[in-house]
């Protein structure tokens, strides 16, 4: 992630942490991610772009062994460190990926990160970084902007989220700008992201050495079917703004 892209998060730590209580994350994204991750007992995990350390804390509390949170944004990491030392001690938070982290992790989680690659080469580098941290056979779970998200700015507004494509006529162009605005309970903040198509994401992850790619739609795990989910979540569940991509790092050739 470029310095500029990272810097835009410096003031957003508390607001970002608050989103964990917003229904689209609390009822849908977070349980979907935790379900996809499964049992983490004893696993070494790197939370790539950990932000406030929300997932890092949960993974530690669920029994993960070594947990490292990485984020280049100092403002986010300050929040992460301060909160984790009270609630989930033993997590290490770093602002850069040192060589000794390469190939060390059973699981790399990268939630809402790939959209902050602002160019094709940057997307490729980011994927290479994520996959390079995995031991052979380790898993990557990442959540980019959904390649079929709804580009109308009002669509997600009821969820405290506004995604607006720079070019509304052509919202699904690789590298196209997307402004993401968070707004709820009197607080607001916005960041600039980029759209990446499914083909580009698969290509970048594949070139980075990730195999067995699976796409998993976000859902509400508590509800067996869409019509059993609370009505106010239906619109989000029909067009979630994010999606899980999962894959495994290729084993090194013998």
């Amino acid at each position: 992630m470029s310095k500029n892209n990272a810097g835009q998060f410096n003031e957003l730590a508390t607001l970002y942490e608050d989103t964990a209580h917003w229904p689209f994350r609390k009822e849908i994204e977070i349980p979907s991610v935790l379900q996809a991750i499964g049992d983490v007992e004893g696993l070494s995990v790197l939370d790539f772009g950990c932000g406030t350390g929300l997932y890092s804390r949960w993974l530690k509390q669920r029994g993960a062994g070594r947990v490292v949170g990485y984020d280049p944004t100092k403002g986010m990491l300050n929040y992460a460190r301060r909160r984790a030392e009270k609630e989930s001690p033993g997590i290490s938070f770093v602002t850069r990926l040192s060589p000794d982290l390469i190939g060390q992790f059973d699981l790399v989680l990268a939630v809402h990160v790939l959209q902050y690659a602002s160019s094709g080469p940057e997307l490729q580098d980011m994927c290479a970084d994520m996959v390079g941290l995995l031991r052979p056979g380790g898993r990557l779970l990442t959540l980019p902007i959904h390649p079929s998200y709804d580009p109308r700015r009002s669509y997600y507004e009821r969820y405290g989220l506004r995604l607006s494509a720079d070019n509304l006529q052509k919202p699904y162009v690789d590298g196209g700008g997307v402004r993401i605005r968070l707004c709820k309970n009197g607080k607001q903040g916005s960041v600039f992201a980029s759209y990446w198509s499914a083909a580009s994401l698969e290509r970048a992850l594949g070139q980075a050495g990730l195999l067995s790619l699976k796409w998993r739609e976000l859902h509400a795990p508590e509800c067996a079917a869409l019509d059993q989910a609370p009505k106010e979540l239906h619109a989000y569940l029909q067009k979630p703004h994010s999606i899980i991509i999962e894959g495994v790092r290729a084993c090194d050739p013998q």
């Binding site: 508390t14 942490e17 406030t52 403002g75 300050n78 929040y79 301060r82 909160r83």
Partner: peptide
């Protein structure tokens, strides 16, 4: 003030303002 919001502004060396 909210504890976590306050502490997000506090660096490692600034314990006495946590």
């Amino acid at each position: 003030m909210d504890e976590h919001e306050w502490d997000a502004l506090v660096s490692d060396d600034n314990f006495y303002n946590s």
